[in-house]
Amino acid sequence: MSYTIIETCTGCGACVRICPARAITGKKKDVHKIDGDLCIECGACGRVCPSAAVKDQFGHVCVMVKRSQWKRPAFAGDLCMSCSMCIDACPVHCLDLSEAKGPKDLHGYPYLKEEKACIGCGFCEAECPVGAVTMVVPVQQETPKKTKPAAKTASRAAS
């Protein structure tokens, strides 16, 4: 199974640029195509497509989301066992293991090293066996009271 692109595609190429598996091809202004053998179903193309032209593996049309609103992994250090499965799962290699936490705990722990590179796919969350990764919208984009203007500030910050 794989994501697909439908005729509403305007050929802007946003998906080509973000696809970590380099699964998307197409000429500018032409309808693009996803290679089903290469697609890893990360959903990034659907989140960037401005023309609602990407369908997920279940056939639902994806909704574009402002990148600042994409979920990012947050790590629960007390649950984490430093197994690095999340790091391995990340298709854009934006996670890394930290230095030792301190003299009492020589383990390194995963952290989001390249925040801008994260495509919000949630593979890290899905592959962590102990539930130490949770996908959340980055904190600095939220206001404490969840009032409406928050979205506006966020979108301006992102553009």
Partner: peptide, 17 residues
Amino acid sequence: SEYVKYHCYSCPLGCGG
């Protein structure tokens, strides 16, 4: 002389360093 633990992929134990 050990300054950080080393875990192989998917290992919760981390015998290496």
